[in-house]
Simulated assay, not measured.
Amino acid sequence: MAVTPMLEQYLSIKKDNPGAILFFRLGDFYEMFNDDALIGSKELELTLTSRDAGKDNRVPMCGVPYHAASSYIGRLVEKGYKVAICEQVEDPREAKGLVKREVVRVVTPGTFAEGSAFEGQNGYIACIYVGKEAYGFAFADISTGEFFTTQIEGANCAGILADELYRITPLEIITAPRQTAWLKESGIFDRLPGIYRDETAERFFQYDNARNELLEQFGVVSLEGFGCSEWPLAITASGALLSYLRETQKHAIPQILKLSSYQTSKYMYLDSSTRRNLEL
């Protein structure tokens, strides 16, 4: 079906951002089209209209003012949606033809640092990497720059990981695509059934890539000073999480200045049932 040049641009950008609601900048508004418009109008209680798509065709449309977008984005991510923000990246007065647009940020529950969509909760986003009877686990808060990692090993490592997740209650969990199904079937997520989960590129979970990501972030040549140099799974989870943050934010994450390693075995451990009974 032939469409207008603007909608052709929209569809091309939308194709590159599957699974995200695309906020497409048009003048003073972010517009949503097609299925995104249907979702947006329902979840945000917006008026659903339509726009000319060419050759007597029309597509569903709704929009929000750009100056109020943060509150609308917050409402969507609170409901478990991912939002891709697409901006005009050249001056319309200097554009030759259609104004160039591109996604400048992808907002998820664990990367939304503005407003109070999750008031009263921490802002942690976590990452899990599975090894042989062991897990690499990392979590961060991009609003504060906190960044933690550990490697959980032993016969009860799955139970300890499940309790760590319950303890920090992250807003989002990142996994490697080839490990997602196994993690789901393992029951690790059972205590947090409504948690938002996403996958990121397998290349982020390659050890060398993950390690180099951490070295570059902290401007060092070794991870010995961070206490995790002998934890390959923790390094993989930490580097993959940092790569995911860079990919979604479309820039470096300067507020993360250090990586804090910890061992779950050094603390008196309270499982999730005990924590609930103690109201912790």
Rank of each mutant, 00 (worst) to 15 (best):
M1R: 11
Y269N: 13
R51K: 11
H251F: 00
S238W: 00
S186Y: 01
A176E: 12
K15F: 10
K184F: 08
P177N: 04
P109I: 03
F137H: 05
G239C: 08
I85M: 13
Y207L: 08
Y30C: 00
A252M: 05
S273N: 13
A201Y: 07
I256R: 05
D198G: 13
A37V: 01
L280Y: 06
T169C: 03
A234Q: 03
L242N: 06
S186E: 11
A252R: 10
R178G: 03
N34H: 12
I152P: 12
D271M: 04
I160N: 03
E216V: 11
G110S: 04
F112K: 05
Y244G: 02
L245T: 08
G54V: 05
N212L: 02
R167N: 08
F139W: 07
E45D: 14
Q263I: 00
Y269A: 14
P193E: 09
P60H: 02
H251T: 14
A138P: 10
V106F: 09
P254E: 02
T108N: 05
Y30M: 00
E43R: 00
I128D: 12
F218E: 01
T111V: 02
S260F: 02
L241A: 10
E216L: 07
M32G: 12
I160D: 03
R51F: 00
D190P: 08
K184N: 10
D16R: 14
D198C: 11
Y66I: 14
Y124V: 06
I173P: 06
K266S: 15
N17P: 06
L214P: 14
P177I: 06
L161N: 10
G136V: 03
S143I: 01
N17Q: 01
F189P: 09
G194Y: 05
A240W: 02
G227L: 09
E199W: 00
R191S: 15
P177D: 04
D91T: 09
F205M: 07
F33Y: 13
F118Q: 12
I152T: 12
F204S: 15
N209I: 09
E102F: 04
T248E: 08
R51M: 01
Q263A: 07
S41W: 00
A117S: 15
S116Y: 09
D16E: 15
I253N: 11
G74F: 01
I125N: 11
L270R: 12
A53Q: 03
T49P: 07
A84T: 11
R178V: 14
C157L: 01
G131V: 06
H251V: 03
I128N: 09
N57E: 14
I85K: 03
P254F: 04
A126N: 07
L38Y: 00
W182T: 11
Q88H: 08
I21Y: 01
C86T: 10
E119V: 02
I128Q: 10
K42C: 04
Y124H: 10
T149E: 02
Y196I: 11
T144G: 10
Q121R: 14
G219R: 04
N122W: 00
Q9E: 15
T248S: 12
K100D: 12
L46P: 06
G187D: 10
Y269W: 13
L48I: 04
R191D: 15
I73N: 09
R211C: 06
R211N: 08
